[in-house]
Design a protein around this nucleic acid. Sequence first.
DNA 1: GCCAACGTTGGC
DNA 2: GCCAACGTTGGC
Length: 157
Amino acid sequence: MNYWLMKSEPSVFGIEQLAKAKNSTTGWDGVRNFQARNYLKEMKQGDLVFFYHSSCEIPGIAGVAAVQREAYPDPTQFDKKNDHYDAASDPSSPRWLMVDVKLVRKFDRVIALDELRKHADGKLKDMIVLKRGNRLSITPVTKSEWSFIESLERASR
DNA sequence: GCCAACGTTGGC
DNA sequence: GCCAACGTTGGC
């Protein structure tokens, strides 16, 4: 099983909305970056995901979700009215994929980016989301990073 | 294939 | 709102 981090802007879709969604599940559409797309392709059912809030008051990890459905073509790429429409994508060989994720647990508090950074020279020294200039919306997380962050969260409960 | 211009992300 | 960092596009 693998671990991931997926960014979402809470003003667009936050963990509260995931909690309220039918079956606490949502389709993660709109990814339009090749590297992120390749990670989507690697995701397996049951993989765990840190749900990260970006571009907001307190950027950080808001909870845990799990991959419910593995990669399938993102229909928004063929919808001319959609912001993520891609005229260059061929329906017989769709360029963009999406997965479905289900909420596992909303954290009692957001594990803020600030707090994660405190460990940027230690346990989280290789964490991609802490790297300068990182903009990738989907990144792999190592098992040790995952366990450490969960311990941070547990310690505060 | 290079690289300047442009658009986007996302923290601050 | 600013701006650094990065991906993509398109001219050559």
